[in-house]
Structures are given as C-alpha cells and as structure tokens.
Amino acid sequence: MSEFILKARDLNKFYTQRSGRFGFGTKQVKALDNVNLELRHASTLAVVGESGSGKSTLARCLLQLQPLDGGSVFFQGRDLAELPANELRKQRRHLQMIFQDPFASLNPRMKVGEIVEEGLLIHDLGTKNERFEKALKMLKRVGLAESDLNKYPHEFSGGQRQRIGIARALVLEPKVVVCDEPVSALDVSIQAQILLLLKELQQEMSLSYIFISHDLRVVRHIADEVAVMHQGKIVEKGSIQEVYESPKQQYTQNLLKAIPGQKRQLA
C-alpha cells in the first residue's frame, strides 16, 4: 500500500447557472478545476480558501456524496467511482464526514444514542448489545455521559452537538474523515476543546483528516499539509511550514496577510 490513503486525480465539477436576461441563457461555473490531492496516512491535510472557492464541493465530491464531472478519487488504491453501489456503500464506513453546522446536521427527532448507533446498524456491525456498548464508549470518549444517550440534540449546546457529530462519524472506526469547517460555528474556548479532541482521536485511531477551513490560524494548529483553493483551483500546496513561511503565490500571501492580529503582537 502506498503512503497515500486517499488520492484525487484531475477532479472537475461544473455547476450550470442561469444567466442573461430572464435567465434564458446558461453559464458554466467551474466549482472544481483539475483538482489533485494526496492525503497521507494518519495525517491532516487542510484545504483553505474563501467562500465560493469550492472547498465544500471538494469535500462532498471526495466522499462521492456528489457526482463528479471528471477525474477519480482513489481510496486505498481503488477508484471509488468504479465500485459497484453495494461495494461503495461498504467502503463508506471508512469514509466519514464531520459537518459544519452542529445544529442542522443532527436529526432532531432521534435520541443521541440512536444517532451514534445508526451507522453501526446500517453497516450491520455487531449484535445489538455490542452496538450499544460501542456507541456508549464513543460518546464517553468524546466527553459526554451515559445519561446523554436518551436525550435529544436540542438539549445540547453547540460544542456538545459537535461532539455528538464526531462520535457519530468515528463510531464506525473510519480511516478517512472529512471535516467541513468543524469549528467555525463555535466560540474560541469551545473551538480549542474540539480541536484538541480531534487531534487526540487522530492519534488513538490513526485517522487521516481532510480539514476544510477558512480560518488560517486554526489550520496552522491542526494540519500537517495545506492546499490553498481559489476559484475551484488549487493554487498552492505543501507542508504547513512551506506554505505559511514562504508562500509562493500572491493569492496565498494576501490570505496570510489578512489574518487578524498581526498589527500588534498578542501576548
């Protein structure tokens, strides 16, 4: 097996937009424009960019949640698009996602225990008791209590809901986790907790993360490598140190310059 667990080759994705007078014309918008990515085993690759740069489209396309218009995604050397539907479904267990909005991404009518257990049920893993035990263990690991199993998502704060979202994704023991802005909806104090939790879990479970974010300060703390997206293209990629300390592209330089807090030094 190669050192890369996930590889994306020449990904293309177009959206058709109505344009012109009364929307009779159409215009193609390139959301992904020949995107190439490699994710190393047990490491974190951050994808940064401004809104509209295509980073969330990339996240969804990598996990085959959205069809591609060109290119392939290789997971452990196998092209995901070539897999038959039932085989892809099996592989999904290893490819999980943590969503941005902890308020919208949990089913309000399901209890937390059911939410966390659901993946195990779908993939038919273990007996009823084993599933329950596993879900409970995962919930405890992310910092929630046994009594929380029977609560509903609305009873939790934003940070706690994000913990539930993490437990839901990780209970399946995935290999690749795509985190789409997992901390951007949270307060700084909660953000720090969640970032540390994600880092600990990465080490314990040797997870590989694709970390989508617009916050360059957060990325610097969590990622090993970074890819900068602009208008559907990856304009620069490299190790955190390379990109942050000697950015080659003007666009990256502008992004780094815009990080707040540089005019005066923080304590």
Partner: peptide, 26 residues
C-alpha cells in the same frame, strides 16, 4: 498583561498566527 484568570484562559484558547502556542481550552 491580563490580570483576570478568565482573560488569561480565554487568550490561551486563541490560535496564534504562528502556530507555536499550544491551545488550552478553558
């Protein structure tokens, strides 16, 4: 020179632009 422990704790949560400071939740 923050005086109050809460201010200190809150500042410790903020990721710095250099990425050198370890994050510490409150």
């Amino acid at each position: 020179k923050p005086k109050h422990p809460y201010t200190k704790a809150l500042l410790a949560c903020v990721p710095d632009a250099e990425g050198k400071k370890p994050l510490k939740p409150i």
